[in-house]
Design a protein around this nucleic acid. Structure first.
Lengths: 231, 231
DNA sequence: AAATAAAATTGACTATAGTCAATTTTATAA
DNA sequence: TTATAAAATTGACTATAGTCAATTTTATTT
């Protein structure tokens, strides 16, 4: 397996979903929709929420995370343009298990709940698209469980750095997923900022990376991949 | 939230799925089906498998788990009568990410792949049933991520014991999920047998549980629930 | 631009939960 | 039933990665 596809295991794309959606369905969905605006750090979606519709991110990026009784957080993945949420809760008629918070200013489109559920009742195409999509979401979570339970902290951090590199540093500005701060990066890797800081320091000494503020520049990608114990 | 529903977060039921399935669809599915028999400890399904159909457990129980490059395992959940697998891989046209191994002798029915995919093409009812089901599977995984990343080993072990108690000890023989050995129980809790053994010993001294071989008898359920930090 | 808050780093320390090895107990197969 | 293998327990030890506190750096707000 390539390193690129290894990284893709931890996020999912909605491009196929939207590309394969017939225009007629898309128009039907958009009939009853509205827009919401969120500022950076705004909580966009909460555990316990019963969604008022299908929430589609039109602009900006967000983190999807869990919180336990002590208030401790765990980021599961990131959401960006085209990604949506609320669909599973509407389909299963239950409330959200996670929080979503804006990492930068976000614009979110809401497709009215009744409208969405009615379309599901009638369109086998929409059903099939959603079925495939939720199947992909399941795969991401299985990969995350493997990540958290079967990899060491060092492996997880190495993967997280490669993830950020693939999703940010190597891309043109318009395609960048987000600028992540180190606290979120550490959390995404399933560790704490101190441990990430020490790991990065170690990599700097070895000449594997350079750290310029938030930006992590990879000098020796092969070494990082080796540390990640992937492929 | 009740302790019972807390435990249900870590497994799912297919009863609703089968109960809500129209007889006509059920009959169509069964038209091209065959039976397979597995002995205890047989690997029933492997990572990388491209499923030949929908696999439905008719009898027996099994564990669904992941393996990393070093051969380390992580049990995600257990499968029992009525549970099925292979559906997501067929829908998404990809291969399995996990292994399934029989915990006791198992009988598995296989619904032919072509037949299954054809029915999905045509039946909106089947689509909707699967959509809800996969949504539930996703919820279980989200809860598992919360379990692994936001709970301490002691909390996880306490939950695992309560889980086994609810799924085995308190039920009549016919409804019991399985008899789990301590190695699997430890793994399910995300730890190693030594740590589980020490935790159980601790509970014995405090009079919270009695351990008779594989059987863990809970004397002080409230104390365990408190340790699990749930509700 | 200055004031304030938040994030990141670093050092010192330590608990948690792991490894390894030896022994006992339990389960499985000949 | 006995032989063999596997699982469970226990003790001794230790590495990993965490906590806590202080400081520095970077962001954000007024």
């Amino acid at each position: 397996m390539s390193i690129e596809s290894e990284i893709e295991k931890y996020c999912f794309s909605t491009e196929i979903f939207w590309d394969n959606m017939p225009l007629s369905i898309y128009r039907e969905l958009k009939k009853h929709s509205s827009l919401m605006h969120f500022k950076k750090n705004d909580i966009m979606y909460r555990e316990g929420t019963i969604p008022k519709g299908l929430y589609i991110i039109k602009h900006g990026t967000a983190k999807l995370y869990l919180i336990n009784a002590d208030g401790k957080e765990q980021i599961v993945y990131f959401l960006t343009k085209g990604n949506f949420y609320g669909h599973r809760s509407m389909i299963g008629n239950n409330s959200s298990l996670f929080f979503i918070t804006a990492l930068e200013d976000c614009e979110v489109e809401i497709i009215d709940r009744t409208n969405f559920l009615l379309l599901i009742q009638n369109s086998i195409t929409l059903n099939k698209l959603l079925l495939e999509h939720i199947g992909n979401e399941y795969r991401v979570l299985i990969n995350k469980i493997s990540f958290f339970t079967l990899k060491s902290v060092n492996e997880r951090i190495a993967i997280a750095i490669l993830f950020v590199n693939q999703k940010i540093n190597s891309l043109p500005e318009s395609k960048k997923l987000f600028y992540i701060n180190k606290t979120d990066l550490a959390n995404f890797a399933g560790t704490i900022p101190e441990t990430l800081s020490r790991f990065l320091n170690n990599l700097k000494i070895k000449g594997i990376v350079d750290v310029k503020g938030r930006k992590i520049i990879i000098n020796d990608r092969e070494a990082l991949i080796k540390m990640a114990k992937i492929i």
